[in-house]
Measured scan of single mutants.
Amino acid sequence: TQVHVDGVTYTFSNPEEAKKFADEMAKRKGGTWEIKDGHIHVE
């Protein structure tokens, strides 16, 4: 599962880990995350 944050791609083999990471990054940025085309995007 790929997580895209500010133009950087992080790859996780476990989708649950990817979601936890996205959640943390979104909180830090004061933003949100969503799943697009099977990838997670942090806004």
Rank of each mutant, 00 (worst) to 15 (best):
N14V: 08
G7H: 07
T11P: 05
F21W: 07
F21R: 01
E43K: 14
K20C: 15
H39P: 02
G31L: 06
V42R: 02
V42Q: 02
G31H: 03
E34C: 14
P15F: 15
E17L: 10
A18E: 00
V42E: 02
H39D: 09
V8Q: 12
E17R: 07
E16H: 09
R28H: 13
I35M: 13
T32P: 03
K29Q: 11
A22E: 01
Y10R: 03
I40Q: 02
K27T: 11
E24K: 09
Y10T: 04
T9A: 09
D23G: 07
E24P: 00
T1E: 03
G30T: 03
P15Q: 12
K27R: 13
H4K: 05
V42A: 02
T1D: 03
K29P: 06
E43F: 15
A26H: 02
E17H: 09
G38C: 09
H4Y: 12
E16N: 10
I35W: 15
G38Q: 04
F12A: 00
A22D: 01
T32I: 10
A22T: 01
G30P: 02
A18F: 01
D37F: 05
V42K: 02
S13Y: 10
A22F: 02
Y10F: 10
W33L: 09
K20D: 10
R28D: 13
K36N: 06
T9V: 14
F12Q: 00
W33V: 13
D23K: 10
E17C: 14
H39M: 13
Y10A: 01
E17Y: 07
V42P: 02
I35E: 12
I40T: 02
H41N: 07
S13N: 10
K20M: 12
Y10S: 02
H4V: 08
T1V: 12
F21C: 11
V3I: 03
V8L: 12
G30L: 05
D23I: 14
G7K: 06
E24F: 12
G38F: 04
T1N: 06
K19S: 08
D37Q: 05
T32Y: 15
D23V: 12
F21Q: 01
G38N: 07
E34R: 11
Y10L: 04
G7R: 06
K36Q: 08
V3T: 01
G30V: 02
N14F: 07
D23N: 10
P15D: 10
E24L: 11
G31W: 07
P15K: 09
S13F: 10
R28E: 14
D37T: 02
K19H: 09
E34D: 07
A18Q: 00
I35T: 06
G7N: 09
E16K: 07
T11F: 14
K27E: 13
T32S: 13
E43I: 15
Q2K: 13
K29T: 15
N14S: 11
F12P: 00
T9G: 03
F12W: 03
S13T: 11
H4S: 06
E16C: 14
R28W: 13
K19M: 15
T1R: 05
F21M: 02
T11G: 06
F12H: 00
H39A: 12
E43A: 13
V3Y: 01
K27H: 12
T9I: 15
T9M: 12
G7F: 06
T11E: 08
D6F: 07
P15M: 15
V3L: 02
E17V: 09
E24D: 10
E24H: 08
T1M: 14
G31K: 03
V8E: 12
M25C: 14
G38A: 04
A18W: 01
R28P: 04
K36S: 07
K29F: 15
E16M: 10
V8S: 08
D6E: 08
T11N: 09
H41W: 15
D23C: 15
G38D: 05
G31F: 06
R28Y: 14
D6V: 03
A18H: 00
K29Y: 15
K27Q: 13
F12G: 00
K29W: 15
K27D: 11
E16D: 12
S13R: 08
V42T: 02
W33Y: 06
K20S: 11
S13Q: 11
E24T: 08
V3E: 00
G31Y: 10
T1C: 14
Q2S: 10
N14R: 07
V3D: 00
E34I: 14
K36E: 06
E34F: 15
Q2N: 11
V3G: 00
N14C: 14
T32A: 08
K29M: 15
T11Q: 08
F21G: 00
K20N: 11
D37C: 14
Q2G: 04
T32W: 15
K29C: 15
K36T: 07
G7Q: 06
A22C: 04
V42I: 12
A26K: 03
H39R: 05
T11K: 08
I35N: 05
V5A: 07
Q2T: 11
D37I: 02
D37W: 05
A18S: 02
M25D: 02
E34S: 09
E34H: 14
F12M: 01
V8K: 12
Q2F: 13
D6P: 01
F12N: 00
G30D: 06
V3R: 00
P15Y: 15
T9R: 08
K20L: 12
K19D: 03
E16V: 09
K19Y: 14
T1K: 04
H39C: 15
T11Y: 14
T11V: 12
I35Q: 07
D6W: 05
V3S: 00
E34T: 13
F12C: 09
K19W: 12
H4W: 12
K36H: 12
T1P: 05
K19G: 06
K36G: 04
A22Q: 01
E17A: 11
S13P: 10
K19I: 15
D37P: 01
V42Y: 04
V5N: 04
T11L: 12
F21P: 00
Y10G: 00
E17N: 08
H41D: 05
N14I: 08
I40A: 02
M25R: 04
N14Y: 07
D23A: 12
Y10C: 11
V5C: 13
F12R: 00
N14E: 09
H4A: 04
